[in-house]
Amino acid sequence: MNRQLSTQFGEKFKKRSHDPDSTLLPRDPRSGEALLPRDQPGYYAGFSTLSQQSFWDAATRKVVTDRVGQNAPIRFFNSDEASFWTTVFDHLIPQTDRIPERRIPILPALDERLRLDRTSGYRFEDMPHDREAYRLGFDAINQEAQSQYHADFISLPHLQQDLVLKEIHDGEPKAAREIWKRMSVHRFWQLMMGDAIDAYYAHPWAWDEIGFGGPAYPRAYIRLERGEAEPWEVEEQRYEWIAPAHAASGEIEGTHEFHTESVQHRSHRRER
């Protein structure tokens, strides 16, 4: 694959035989052709928060740069669990639009959090402790895969994996009734998504992707109005894309009739 070409944003490329499975790549909405992985997806080509790190304070620079290129060993999960959850997170926040060297690790942050038993400071009363929730979730997702497709989750084709997770997302798992009696489906989904977001969008490469300026102390932001870019930020350069052919997460729902927190994560979000 031509790295030079793949880093030119906004252009379309035809898939070549040795490229990743095109059914898993985002597509051009007009031609339907797969868009080749980029080293920086998103609409801010050329923007790099890390390039500004000499303008950050030392403590911030350390915490952010330590996050990049971290290769922390997985210590809480065993190797089966680690493969399983890595696969799950590849669906919750897919990264096939990123070249492999620029994918953002998600599991290490969760593994470290669970190893230290660090929580967000509260547990819903219809939820077990976070460590137990992930143990139960492992079983529940595998049971869902078995009931739908008669195989463990990790051995399923990508699209079927997506569909298994969508059952949980929709709050309508068919299997593992005993587990879901002990653990709220929508709170578990919220927990997994929260951990995925906490890892992915804490990474400066994700900030570059979404055009978030990142740390600005002590330098300051000076252009506050009309969405203007700082001199060191870049202008938005949009391109069209749609989700891969083999993905169930591309279409998301619009707004729902709900007003209180307790019902908003449920699938049928209409208040009685």
Partner: peptide, 11 residues
């Protein structure tokens, strides 16, 4: 995630 039930590519 809460407002639009976004996940995966939608997120």
């Amino acid at each position: 995630v809460a407002a639009k039930k976004a996940w995966g590519w939608g997120l």
